[in-house]
Design a protein around this nucleic acid. Structure first.
Lengths: 202, 202
DNA sequence: TGTACATCAGTGAACGCGCGTTCACTGATGTAC
DNA sequence: TGTACATCAGTGAACGCGCGTTCACTGATGTAC
């Protein structure tokens, strides 16, 4: 039953991608090794030919999902990102959505391995969201980073709060609509980087 | 081994409170019935004299935790809330912190029972956060609600994103500090309710 | 290029373990007279 | 108020089940000559 080296690598990648999707949908604890391997088209015994433990796969699948989110974000300006991210479509499709929104609650309780992958994934996403500003002075760069960090946290909070409400409930939609509008407004006004007149009072 | 009716009610309440704390700390799947009962000072067999299933307790413990958050918020103005909520102390103490921040990721994958409790808990928290505005016209009320929804989602996103990063990492603190400052700034400027000049474009 | 052998990806049965839940039992509490 | 009996909160053993992990085995792939 041995398989080409290339085929084995491809199978491994397929298992990781399947895991990333299933973990987003059901959480790390909500998917077993046997079920996961079956979903990828294999029997469970072979799992340990590819990964040392389920925890190892959890870290790798997280990294995979996070880099996918960053890749999809590349080239979008912040407003485009928010329109796509803070939407019913995204909220209602955990398995294909953002790994941070799907799993950050779980990640908070996991080992440093996984949190490290999350931190790296968040940094990549921040970079993807920071438009390559023309003549990027240090102050501009820092202001852009601040704006993007805040916008991302805001968007993630909106999705997660909406997802915690019953499917199709008015509150779930209200949260999403209110937040999308507010985030877009604050992007347009950009009261973030430039400390005009009333800067240091907090 | 029978116990006073009052004692039984007290024991039940103690089990619910213990569950709320443990679920916040480790997630619904991270705490077993036996472990939970032991933490409350009982053996596991008696569990089903109080609850029909673990799922029932999950819903009740969630409701309990959520109402505790709302109760603690009563009387704080939005800026005070943000200072307490978007803080290292809160981030580093899941077991005593906000149930939404601790469990909304898990709640998204749970049954309608639990999501219904979350929606009710969120509504209560929104009410607690809306200062009793003097002469509350409909427009003011709606503007206040919009502001509070947005501020809550923003704060929750900040905590959850920070918690997904490794303990003590610079990024975890940066997220928290940036968001706290931005949320307080947008509260102070209040660009939310009043649609000055450029209202209906989204 | 062809043959002989070692490698190892994938299979499927089996492992111990902890899970949620059930149950017979205990004995103090609550109730009926 | 005192006695007799039913109730039921709490105990601890046991249930079937699915979990993560291990292992002997298979047979095509990769390697050495």
């Amino acid at each position: 039953m041995r398989v080409t080296r290339a085929q084995a690598e491809q199978n491994r990648a397929h298992i990781v991608a399947t895991a990333a999707r299933l973990f987003r949908e059901r959480g790390y604890d909500g998917v077993g090794v046997a079920e996961l391997m079956a979903a990828a088209g294999f029997t469970h015994g072979g799992f340990y030919k590819h990964f040392r433990s389920k925890a190892d796969l959890m870290a790798e699948a997280s990294a995979n999902g996070l880099s996918q989110t960053a890749a999809r974000t590349e080239g979008l300006d912040p407003a485009e990102f928010v329109e796509k991210y803070v939407s019913r479509e995204h909220r209602d499709d955990r398995s294909d959505g953002c790994t941070i929104a799907a799993l950050s609650g779980d990640a908070a309780r996991q080992s440093a391995d996984i949190k490290t992958e999350f931190a790296a994934g968040i940094e990549n996403l921040l970079t993807a969201l920071q438009a390559p500003s023309d003549t990027p002075g240090d102050a501009d760069q820092r202001a852009a980073r601040t704006m993007v960090i805040d916008m991302l946290a805001h968007s993630i909070g909106a999705i997660m709060l909406s997802r915690a409400c019953p499917d199709g409930s008015p509150l779930a939609d209200e949260i999403l609509d209110v937040c999308r509008k507010e985030i877009l407004t604050s992007l347009a006004h950009g009261n973030s980087g430039q400390p005009a007149a009333r800067s240091s009072e907090a």
